[in-house]
Nucleic acid binder design. Structure first.
Lengths: 130, 130
DNA sequence: TTGACATATGATCATATGTTCATATAATCA
DNA sequence: TGATTATATGAACATATGATCATATGTCAA
C-alpha cells in the first residue's frame, strides 16, 4: 500500500521545479544524507501506527496504571474480549506489551515504557489551547 | 471501523472473570476515573495515526531540516507530486504542517514542533539494541 | 493571450484494518 | 470425566487508506 521505497533507490530524475527556483546541489546532497534510513522510517512508522488507533491508545492508557487481565481490559476499554485479544496480539508482536499467565488468566502489562512517554507528550500536546 | 465508544457509555455488565480473581470495586472505579477521556483518546490516536505511515514520517523528517517546496519534497521522499500533495493535505488538515505560497511554488514547513520531538524519541527508541 | 509549469483535488482501485462470529485451546471445578 | 471459564485465533465483512490517473486551478514567461 504505502510506498516505502527509499528515495535513493529511485533513479535521480531532474527536478521538475529546478528551473523555477535555485537549488544548491551540495545542500540537497547533505540533506539527503542526513535523512532517516529506510529501516528506521519503517520501524518508527510501525510504532506510531500501533498507537494510531483509539482502542490501542486506551489499552496503553489502562496498562500505564498497572497490569490487567484480558477481561478487565475488555471491560475498561469497552470492547469485546475477542476484539481485545486481537489487539493485544498486535501489541504483543510489536513487543509493546507482555503477558504473564496464571492458570487461565492472562495478565498484560507494558513491555515498553517509552510508549507511556509518547502518550503523555502527545496528550499534553493535543490538550494545549491552540 | 474502530470502536471509540467510551467504556462509561456502555452499561456496566458483570465482569466475566469476576469469579476467578478478586476485584476491588473501589480501585477499579478510581482507575476508571483516571483514564483519558474520549476526546483526548481520539485526538491522540489521530496524531499517532498521521505519523504511522512511512511516507508521512519521511515528510516530517525532511521538514525537520527546514521548509521545502512540494516538488523537492516529492523528490526527497521518493513519491509522485500528486501523492505528496494528498499527504500534505492530511498533514495540513491536522495542522502539523503549514504552507507559504510564493508564485506558483508552495513551501511547506512544520507547524507543530512537538512532532519532531515525538519522531526523535521514537527513533532513538527503535534504534536501541534490544 | 497562449503555453508551460507547480500544485491541488476528485475518482478509482487494490490493499489494509478492526470488528464480529464461530470455534479452538487450555485450565479449573463439580 | 464433563462442564464451565478465560483467552486465542481463523474467516468473513464493512470500512478506511494510500497510490495513481485525469483534470482543475493558479502563476509566470514569451
Amino acid at each position: 500500500m504505502t510506498k516505502t521505497a527509499a528515495p535513493s533507490v529511485k533513479p535521480t530524475v531532474a527536478q521538475a521545479c529546478e528551473s523555477s527556483h535555485p537549488h544548491d546541489p551540495q545542500a540537497l546532497a547533505t540533506l539527503r544524507a542526513s535523512l532517516l534510513v529506510d529501516a528506521t522510517v519503517a520501524s518508527v512508522a510501525e510504532v506510531f501506527k500501533l498507537l494510531g488507533d483509539p482502542t490501542r491508545v486506551r489499552v496503553v492508557d489502562v496498562l500505564s496504571h498497572g497490569e490487567r487481565c484480558v477481561c478487565d481490559l475488555a471491560e475498561l476499554v469497552g470492547i469485546s474480549e475477542s476484539a481485545i485479544s486481537h489487539q493485544l496480539r498486535l501489541l504483543r508482536a510489536a513487543r509493546l506489551v507482555r503477558v504473564r499467565r496464571t492458570g487461565r488468566l492472562a495478565y498484560y502489562s507494558l513491555d515498553d515504557h517509552h510508549v507511556v512517554g509518547l502518550l503523555h507528550d502527545t496528550r499534553k500536546h493535543v490538550e494545549e489551547p491552540s
